[in-house]
Lab assay of single mutants.
Amino acid sequence: KFNKELSVAGREIVTLPNLNDPQKKAFIFSLWDDPSQSANLLAEAKKLNDAQAPK
């Protein structure tokens, strides 16, 4: 279960257009550290992506 959630969340995070590479890497490392938090980490990444969207 975690492997699928981890890969789905990881793929989504790397495609978020408004995150820079260090931010993406930080989220990916957090996913590896605790795969059970993949849904929460993906939600946080999406929030940050939205907040950094060009206005």
Score class of each variant (00 low, 15 high):
residue 1 K to P: 12
residue 1 K to E: 14
residue 2 F to E: 12
residue 2 F to M: 13
residue 3 N to P: 12
residue 3 N to V: 11
residue 3 N to K: 05
residue 4 K to Y: 12
residue 5 E to N: 09
residue 5 E to G: 09
residue 5 E to D: 10
residue 5 E to V: 10
residue 5 E to F: 08
residue 5 E to S: 10
residue 6 L to C: 15
residue 6 L to N: 04
residue 6 L to D: 05
residue 6 L to P: 04
residue 7 S to R: 11
residue 7 S to V: 15
residue 8 V to C: 12
residue 8 V to N: 13
residue 8 V to D: 14
residue 9 A to F: 08
residue 9 A to M: 11
residue 10 G to V: 15
residue 10 G to F: 15
residue 11 R to Q: 11
residue 11 R to K: 09
residue 11 R to I: 12
residue 13 I to G: 00
residue 13 I to Q: 01
residue 14 V to I: 14
residue 15 T to L: 14
residue 15 T to Y: 07
residue 16 L to Q: 03
residue 16 L to C: 05
residue 16 L to R: 02
residue 16 L to N: 00
residue 17 P to R: 07
residue 17 P to W: 00
residue 17 P to M: 05
residue 18 N to A: 04
residue 18 N to D: 01
residue 18 N to T: 01
residue 19 L to R: 00
residue 19 L to C: 04
residue 20 N to C: 11
residue 20 N to M: 07
residue 20 N to K: 09
residue 21 D to W: 15
residue 23 Q to H: 00
residue 23 Q to E: 03
residue 24 K to L: 02
residue 25 K to I: 11
residue 25 K to E: 14
residue 26 A to Y: 11
residue 27 F to P: 11
residue 27 F to L: 06
residue 27 F to H: 00
residue 27 F to E: 04
residue 28 I to P: 00
residue 29 F to N: 14
residue 29 F to G: 14
residue 31 L to S: 03
residue 31 L to Q: 03
residue 31 L to E: 07
residue 31 L to A: 03
residue 31 L to F: 02
residue 32 W to P: 02
residue 32 W to K: 02
residue 33 D to I: 10
residue 33 D to F: 09
residue 34 D to A: 04
residue 34 D to Y: 03
residue 34 D to F: 03
residue 36 S to Y: 07
residue 36 S to R: 05
residue 37 Q to V: 04
residue 38 S to N: 07
residue 39 A to V: 09
residue 39 A to D: 10
residue 40 N to Q: 13
residue 41 L to N: 01
residue 43 A to F: 06
residue 43 A to G: 04
residue 43 A to R: 10
residue 43 A to Y: 08
residue 43 A to K: 09
residue 44 E to D: 06
residue 47 K to W: 07
residue 48 L to Y: 02
residue 48 L to V: 07
residue 49 N to Y: 01
residue 49 N to S: 06
residue 50 D to P: 02
residue 50 D to T: 07
residue 50 D to I: 08
residue 52 Q to M: 08
residue 52 Q to D: 02
residue 53 A to F: 05
residue 54 P to S: 08
residue 54 P to T: 08
residue 55 K to F: 05
